[in-house]
Structure formats: structure tokens, C-alpha cells
Write a protein that binds this DNA or RNA. Structure first.
Length: 578
RNA sequence: GCCCUUGUAGUUCAAUGGAUAGAACAAAACUCUUCUAAGGUUUUGAUGUAGGUUCGAUUCCUACCAAGGGCACCA
């Protein structure tokens, strides 16, 4: 419909002497202005040296001559807008079409044939899985699903730092921690206990790294030994027992978190498997003059490319995060030939870092640079202070999720559930509340989270969207029970905003994909759910006497499916009941 | 010091250069013998400051103010 109207307006505009015009066609915010609105007359009036209103009148005249079937009226409004209203029958038919699509409603084919990798979450073994990882996971998963829903083949990747200074700090911490305080948790301890022990060991190690020169020297030495895992494996076994233990429980624990959040990665990358490649690339392009020797390190002189200089190989001869990133990127494109796009989601403190990486690729492999996309998120901040896993004042994902779950628990008190159902609802609703909080606003900005107020489940929230869907499903079930006919025999004279919003779903998906902006979907679903809730309050949907009942039930069905798919794209599940 | 990002109701967020700047929370009132009241209805309230570009600026440009992040061997 949008394309059809755009074309018609383009033709009408062309007759006024404007060629190759860019037609802007939008849904006016105020529904009273019509279903579509265009500002072409305002845009091109200057070029033609006529008043916008005069031009608009002429275009409207042409449009009327075209006699487009679905259009009920074309009007001039305001300073020169062309407002178009669509016949109600078109929307009724639109709902019927959506109903036919069933579970695939809203899926588009914009990205068909494309292969897109999304790398996100990237927690580091040997360290805590904190709320920053929760954010990256939520944003990344949603972007992956939007892309998938747009028809692309999506590869979910997760990149984990199994070598590096942080590992050395934890190793040192474990070794010294054991001596002084606590022994390593035994096998019968829970995974969470083991992981939190390791988190403490890291903080302990880091504390000494920063304050004690001798400890710093030891940790640096351990770091070198850890790298020997890659370079010359025979010197590594010194810490092998602690290392293997730490890596194993970290990965096991991450899996439990992913399961809870609803992510399933297709590919895990480790720093240890890309570090060597990174070194190779740096050496190769050092010879070609892309990198330079500087103060014993090898750096990329970013200033030559509008960026800043960064160290790729340190004076110890070890690859930094930067060099590993080169190896990782090459490996991604090597593992998945024909990759059309490689998206990486990280915290926004890495924005400048990624610009340098992409600039370096721009010099070495422009083809790859053009396919790289970096997206970032802000921090999920408990209104007091910045969190840092180095200082240990971080909120772990575990703690935050538990906090949300206990809030849901409160609400669940009055409802009757089986134990199994209770736990499921508790978890699904808590995750929805959390993901909604993260995805409701444009990605990139910080999300301020007040731990005392926590999260209200009233108003715009994940549970609000789930609740509207659950109610629609309950109505559908009731209709089935009451034996309301499936066949729609009568349709309403006049459609509501609900129908109009429903048929826009695919457009919203497309925009979210184009702009890498999940929050457009959130905004849309909130409006849609709110519209449905009003409709639900004003209309009896299930009735054995009202001829409109089958239509209303079919509308509820389409609504429930759009909500389910829209929430799926956000990574949110809908419970059976709540 | 330099670079990047962000300043919108009391609060947390929206708004492809367009029309009367949308929600939610908080506050006040109403609403469950119709399908789940985690709902619905109504009322109050905002574009950091100063310029500029434009028919039109929350949006683009400049300066200032404020907040956050980054800037060499961490990831």
C-alpha cells in the first residue's frame, strides 16, 4: 500500500515538473489527519516557486484522477500536507490477510539471502557475569532476532577471553586466596558458589596488582605463562589445574545464564584461538608499513586515518585485545564464507577502540571493513556510581535477575498455579521485565535503574505486554469453548485504530532492522497492547448472539500472534497464564 | 588539554526537518455479578542557555553550560 501510494504521488508530482522526487509518506501521529500523509508539496514548492498549498492542490487533483481503489479521501491540510484516508474495507481485508499468515505474521524478506553474524555478550571466563553482559545479551539477541525475522541467515557468536591479564589476576588470586583464606569450593558446592568464589579471587588479585609492585610483577609473569598456552604449550602446566577448573565452571555457568535468557549461540570464539592469527596479521602489515614500532611495542598510528594510536602488540611481545580482534575478524570471515555483515555489540566505552579497528581494516582489507558494524550499549546503572568488575562493586546478573524474580513473586501470591507453572511464570515474567527495561529506549544510552524502586509492573513494562497477550489468549480459548464460529460473516462498518496498527507490524520490523533499533518495536507493541486493552474494555469479544463476535475473535487472534511474534523478536516469551 | 556521546514534564523514556512534542511512573478522581483490575477512563505538567540555517528546528550548524565515556602497552 505504501509503495502504491508513493508511486501515485510520484507520478502526480512529476506532472508538476519535479522529476526523481523523493516522496515522504508517513502515518501522521494524530489519526484524525488520516492514514497516510505526505509533505511533498512543502518540500518542492520552493523549487517550483509556487505556494505549498497551491502545489498540494494540484497534486491532490492528479491523485483524485488516478482513482486509487483503496483511497477514500485525499485532502489538503495545515501548511500544505496531503492527507490520505483509506477505506475501512481495506483494513478489514488486511486483518483477514494477517490471520491467514498465522504464526509467520510480520515476517519480511528484506534480508533474504544475506548471511549476518551477530557477536554479543562476550563475558570473560574467570570473571563475573555482570549486568553489563546482561545488557549486551539482551540487545544482541534482539538484533539477531530482528535480522532473522527479516529473512537473513543469522549466526550468533560469542567471544570469550580465556587468555589475558584478567585471567592472570584470577589465577594469582586463586593461588594466594587459597593460602590465606578460603579453599576452592569443593565439587558438591553449587555452580553459583564456585563462580562467585572466582569473582572474588579476581577482585583480590586485581587489588594487589594495582597496589603492590611485587604482586604486579608476579601477575605479569603469570600472564606470560598463560600466553604460553598458545605459543609453547610445555611451560603452561604450572597453573593448568586451576586454569582448567576455572574455565570449565565459567563456561558451565554461562550456559545456565544463556538458557534462562533464551540465547543459543552457534559459535563460540576464544581469544586463545585468534591471538596467534592476530600477531601474524600485525607482523605482515608491519612489513607493509601499516603498523609501526614504537617504544618497544607495535602500534597502529591512527592519527594518519583520523583516529588515535593504539598498541597492538605490547613490549612483552604479547598481542593485546586489538591484535586479537584482527585475528577474530579474519576468522569470522574465514569460518563463514559469504558473510554479508558482521555486527559486534559491546559496551559504549569501546566505541573509539572499534573505530580504530575498523580504520585499520580499512587500510588492510577494505572489503571486510565495509561489512563490519559496531553497535554499543550504555550501562545498566544502579543510580549510585559506576560499576567496575575490577573494583568488585559490580552487580552480577544473578543478583539482578533474582531481584526481579522476587518482585514477580509478590504479584504471584494471589494466583493459583502448580509449582512448576509458578516457577516458569516467575522466571519468564522477570526476564521480560528486565529485557523490556533495556530495550524500551534507544540503544547506546545508559539505563538508570533504581534498586530501591526496582521495577514497577504497572504501566509500560514487559509484564504489561505479556498480560495483554495472555488475556487475548484467554478470550480465544473461551470463544472455542463457547463454540463461536470460526467463519467471519459480518465485519464492522468502521474499523478502530487497533486494526490500523496491526497491519503496520511488518513496517515496524523493517524500520527496526534498518536502524538497528529494537526500541521501535517496543514502542509499537506498547501502543498496540494499549489499543487492545481499550478495545477489550469496550467490546464484548465472545458472544453467541452478536454476529460480530467471530470477527472480534479473529481480531484477538491476530493481535495475540502479532504480540507473540513482536515479543519473540525482543527475546521475550509469553506465558500461558499469568 | 583533545575527541566522542547525551541534555525533553517532578522522575524514566519516545518523536524518518513538519501539523496541537507522545507514553509511563508519581499525584487526584472514577471503574470489576462481560471474557484475567498486572486492566480501562479523566485531570495537571517539558524541548539546558545564546545565536545561525530553513516556509518550518527537539531534530542540522556554531559557541557556552552540565553529565557520561575515551585518549599506549587492560579487556
Amino acid at each position: 500500500m505504501t509503495d502504491k501510494l508513493k508511486k501515485a504521488i510520484a507520478i502526480a508530482t512529476e506532472k508538476q515538473g519535479i522529476t526523481n522526487s523523493i516522496i515522504n509518506l508517513e502515518h501522521p501521529e494524530d489519526n484524525a489527519f488520516g492514514d497516510f500523509s505526505s509533505n511533498v508539496a512543502l518540500v518542492y514548492s520552493k523549487q517550483l516557486k509556487v505556494a505549498p498549498k497551491v502545489l498540494a492542490e494540484k497534486i491532490i487533483e492528479e491523485l483524485k484522477k488516478e482513482n486509487i481503489e483503496e483511497v477514500s479521501s485525499v485532502e489538503l491540510a495545515g501548511p500544505g500536507f496531503i492527507n490520505i484516508k483509506i477505506k475501512d474495507a481495506y483494513f478489514v481485508k488486511g486483518i483477514a490477510d494477517l490471520a491467514k499468515q498465522g504464526e509467520t505474521v510480520g515476517k519480511i524478506t528484506k534480508d533474504a539471502g544475506r548471511k549476518v553474524m551477530v557477536e554479543y555478550t562476550d563475558p570473560n571466563p574467570f570473571k563475573i557475569f555482570h549486568i553489563g553482559h546482561l545488557m549486551a545479551n539482551t540487545v544482541g539477541e534482539s538484533l539477531a532476532r530482528i535480522t532473522e525475522f527479516s529473512g537473513a541467515e543469522v549466526i550468533r557468536a560469542c567471544y570469550q577471553g580465556d587468555v589475558g591479564l584478567h585471567v592472570a589476576k584470577t589465577m594469582w588470586g586463586i593461588i594466594n586466596f587459597v593460602k590465606e583464606h578460603n579453599p576452592i569450593p569443593r565439587d558438591e558446592s553449587t555452580l553459583v558458589e564456585k563462580v562467585s568464589y572466582m569473582g572474588k579471587a579476581y577482585v583480590y588479585g586485581n587489588q594487589f596488582y594495582e597496589t603492590d609492585a611485587e604482586c604486579k610483577r608476579e601477575i605479569t609473569e603469570i600472564n606470560g605463562l598463560i600466553y604460553s598456552k598458545i605459543f609453547q604449550s610445555e611451560t603452561f602446566p604450572i597453573f593448568k589445574k586451576e586454569y582448567d577448573w576455572g574455565l570449565k565452571i565459567s563456561l558451565e555457568y554461562f550456559d545456565t545464564v544463556y538458557k534462562k535468557l533464551g540465547t543459543k549461540f552457534d559459535k563460540f570464539y576464544f581469544e586463545s584461538e585468534v591471538a596467534l592469527d592476530g600477531v601474524k596479521i600485525v607482523k605482515e602489515f608491519l612489513a607493509k608499513g601499516v603498523f609501526e614500532n614504537s617504544e618497544g611495542a607495535i602500534v597502529f598510528p591512527g592519527e594518519k586515518h583520523g583516529e588515535h594510536t593504539r598498541v597492538f602488540i605490547n613490549s612483552q611481545g604479547l598481542p593485546t585485545y586489538e591484535a586479537k580482534e584482527l585475528g577474530l575478524t579474519m576468522k569470522k570471515f574465514g569460518d563463514f564464507p559469504g558473510l554479508s555483515e558482521s555486527i559486534a555489540v559491546t559496551a559504549n566505552e569501546q566505541n573509539a577502540y572499534f573505530k580504530v579497528i575498523i580504520a585499520a581494516f580499512g587500510v588492510m582489507y577494505p572489503e571486510i571493513a565495509s561489512k563490519m558494524k559496531h553497535l554499543s550499549h550504555g550501562i545498566l546503572r544502579p543510580s549510585s556510581g559506576k560499576m567496575s568488575s575490577r573494583k568488585g562493586n559490580v552487580v552480577s546478573a544473578e543478583v539482578l535477575l533474582e531481584e526481579f524474580e522476587s518482585l514477580v513473586e509478590e504479584k504471584l501470591k494471589d494466583r493459583k498455579f502448580t509449582t512448576e507453572e509458578h516457577d516458569e511464570v516467575r522466571r519468564v515474567v522477570a526476564v521480560a521485565a528486565l529485557k523490556f527495561t533495556i530495550l524500551r529506549q534507544a540503544i547506546g544510552g545508559d539505563i538508570i535503574y533504581d534498586p530501591t524502586k526496582a521495577v514497577s509492573f504497572e504501566g509500560d513494562s514487559g509484564p504489561y505486554l505479556q498480560y495483554a497477550t495472555v488475556r487475548a489468549n484467554a478470550v480465544i480459548a473461551k470463544a472455542k469453548e463457547a463454540g463461536v464460529s470460526e467463519a467471519v460473516v459480518k465485519t464492522p462498518e468502521k474499523v478502530e485504530l487497533l486494526e490500523k496498527l496491526l497491519i503496520r507490524f511488518p513496517e515496524i520490523i523493517e524500520r527496526a532492522r534498518l536502524e538497528y533499533a529494537p526500541h521501535h518495536i517496543v514502542t509499537y507493541l506498547v501502543n498496540l497492547a494499549s489499543e487492545f486493552n481499550s478495545y477489550y474494555a469496550n467490546n464484548q469479544i465472545v458472544s453467541t448472539t452478536d454476529e460480530l463476535s467471530p470477527y472480534r475473535v479473529s481480531l484477538a487472534k491476530v493481535f495475540a500472534q502479532v504480540m507473540k511474534n513482536g515479543l519473540w523478536v525482543l527475546g521475550i516469551k509469553v506465558p500461558e497464564r499469568m
